[in-house]
Every structure is written in C-alpha cells, then in structure tokens.
Computed example of a mutant assay.
Amino acid sequence: MKCLFSCANQYVKESDWKDFALVKLCLCAIGVMIGLAVPKKKKKMPLLIAAIVFIATYIPLMTKFLRIVFRKEDDAACECE
C-alpha cells in the first residue's frame, strides 16, 4: 500500500492542472454512468450520499484553493509597492 501512495504522490508531482481536469472529467463520467444504472425508484439514497460526499470534499478543496489565491494576491500587492 505504501508503494501505491508513493506512486500517487509522484504522479501528483509530475502533473499539472490539465491532468487533474482529465481525472475529474473521468470521475464525473463514471459517476454519471453509475447514476444512470440506479433504478429510478431507488435514486434518493445515492443522491443523498453523493451530496454529502460532494459537500464534505468541496469545502476543504475550496478552502485550500482560496487560501492560495489570497496569498498570491497579497504577494502580488507587495511586489507592486
């Protein structure tokens, strides 16, 4: 398992935003395929679970991203003076 995490870390180091966009599109596509496979009568629970997972992952991701954006803006303001 440690080898797998090591490989994943190396992948991240060698990737750029385009690679991560492709990963996100791939995961979105598989999510849509899974969603289409769920019978119409049983879609409430998967929707609820997906919404919880989305919120639980989106908030920390955006928090980190906004921290970086504001840090960059502060750095740019300091360079202009």
Rank of each mutant, 00 (worst) to 15 (best):
I59H: 07
A8P: 03
C7D: 06
M1E: 08
T57Q: 14
A50F: 15
I30Q: 11
Q10I: 04
P60V: 08
C3N: 09
A56D: 02
F70K: 04
Y58P: 01
C80T: 09
E79N: 10
R67N: 10
A76Y: 14
L36P: 01
K24D: 07
F20W: 15
E14A: 11
T63P: 06
S15F: 11
K41H: 03
D74H: 14
I68H: 05
C7F: 10
A77Q: 11
K64M: 00
L4D: 12
A51D: 03
D74T: 06
F5D: 05
C80A: 15
L47A: 12
L48T: 10
D16P: 02
E81C: 09
P39M: 09
K2F: 14
L4C: 07
K43Y: 01
L66Y: 07
K43N: 01
K13A: 09
R67D: 09
V69F: 01
I49A: 11
K40Q: 11
T63N: 05
K2D: 10
A8L: 13
E73T: 04
F70R: 03
M33A: 15
T63A: 10
L61A: 15
C28H: 12
D74Q: 14
M62H: 10
R71Q: 14
A37Q: 05
K42W: 02
I68G: 01
I30D: 10
V23H: 08
A29G: 03
K72G: 02
P39C: 06
D16N: 15
E81P: 06
L22F: 11
S6E: 02
Y58A: 08
G35Q: 03
A37P: 02
R67Y: 08
A50G: 15
R71Y: 13
P39W: 05
K44A: 12
A29L: 02
A50C: 14
R71E: 11
E79A: 13
S6A: 07
M1N: 06
I49D: 05
I68N: 04
